[in-house]
Write a protein that binds this DNA or RNA. Structure first.
Lengths: 231, 231
DNA sequence: GTCTATAATCCGATAGAC
DNA sequence: GTCTATCGGATTATAGAC
């Protein structure tokens, strides 16, 4: 049998997240792939290189998801898309998401620090920027953008972490509704009433999907365009 | 030199959290303690037993911190104390806090599952109960206690995680203020105005401590007793 | 590009002297 | 209660045949 770089990384991330770092050995990895250990050295020069590349790809993918939010044409759209894409990344690449936050335990600080520290800062700044322009557009209550961004980030990250650890007894669809509902509770405090109301409507619509989803609810539009109205 | 159980556990937790599970070896642990590896087997029958006991103690300590909130005499006090004690545990035992959430990667599901799963459920139920009685007392807006408790838990956990990972450029004192400020932003949405106002005052008082703390600000009283007034 | 065989290292744990 | 010495096994990584 033959393997390629992608299959190795995929199997390695699964091994790493589901059974822990000690379980990611060249032998175990090769066994899963149907080859022997030395074959892996044709694709990676060492075990550590596999882990480093894995974490690097997790960061890259994360940045790609997040920056896609810049396709939104209004501050409200970009703000909303940022939250959606953050959640989408966590749910579509759960092992990467865990890897991102466990990376400091997996590899030495010097291995990825330049890129990772920079990426972590960039992510923080990205969210702050989306919050700031949402404030300027009158969508969020006035305040310190950095502080509000931290609050939003912490809430999303905490909720996702708890879910991925299996501490919420619900499936992915249930968690998506739960995430919207919880985010709305948070927005009630930091968003202007008009936008909070729109988020409430979105959460209600999502709840409606639960009991007999209307078949045209596929491409439900973004919550509002309230970001352009005032100013 | 001689070692005791406590020194071993303390050094082991440090090794585990700061350098990862692979770094916790009997040899490395013994070296840090100034003894040789076989000496450790006088106190623990195996390496795994060290990890299991460590996680167990992290859970026990956590429960002790949390249940102390029951000393509050009013729903408002118990609600407030729950949040304070949760934060106190995380800041006074940061390695235990990380251990708690990494435990599923450290030991087999069967080793601690009875106690851990039960403790995790108990903690969740404890917070839900405090939220429910705070709602009944008119301190929080009416709603689903489980949903609101999840939101509060997620926010606190997320913020603490981000801080412990060193992603917030601030010291512990700065983080305490930051935590209060962020919690207030959240409370603005889920608490009744009277209590939200009290939390705002508390956050402002904490901010005042920043620039020239008044020397009598030591035992600042609990935010309010608003929980007993309405009904 | 994968195999077998193997070198070198590190691990957990035990035996027995002191 | 700690030490030295050691067993048995696992690991990463390499050498060389095919």
């Amino acid at each position: 049998m033959s393997v390629d770089r992608e299959r190795i990384l995929a199997e390695a991330s699964d091994l790493l997240v589901t059974e822990g770092p000690h379980a990611l050995t060249m032998r175990a990895l090769a066994r899963r792939l149907g080859v022997t250990a030395p074959a892996l050295y044709r694709h990676f020069e060492s075990r550590e290189r596999i882990v480093v590349d894995l974490v690097g790809e997790a960061f890259d993918t994360f940045a790609r998801y997040l920056y896609r939010a810049l396709e939104g044409r209004t501050p409200a759209e970009r703000f909303s898309l940022t939250g959606r894409n953050y959640l989408a990344y966590a749910l579509e690449h759960p092992r990467y998401y865990e890897l991102l936050h466990a990376s400091h335990n997996l590899i030495g600080v010097e291995q990825l620090h330049p890129e990772a520290q920079q990426c972590a800062c960039a992510v923080g700044q990205f969210i702050v920027d989306r919050v700031r322009e949402a404030m300027d557009a009158g969508m969020l209550k006035p305040g310190d953008p950095e502080s509000v961004a931290r609050t939003i980030w912490a809430h999303s990250h905490g909720l996702i972490t708890i879910y991925l650890r299996g501490l919420l007894r619900t499936d992915e669809a249930g968690f998506r509704r739960l995430f919207l509902e919880s985010t709305w509770q948070l927005m009630e405090g930091i968003a202007e009433p008009a936008f909070a109301e729109a988020m409430r409507a979105e959460a209600a619509a999502a709840a409606a999907d639960e009991a007999g989803a209307p078949p045209d609810g596929v491409g439900r539009p973004l919550p509002v365009e309230v970001g352009e109205a005032p100013r």
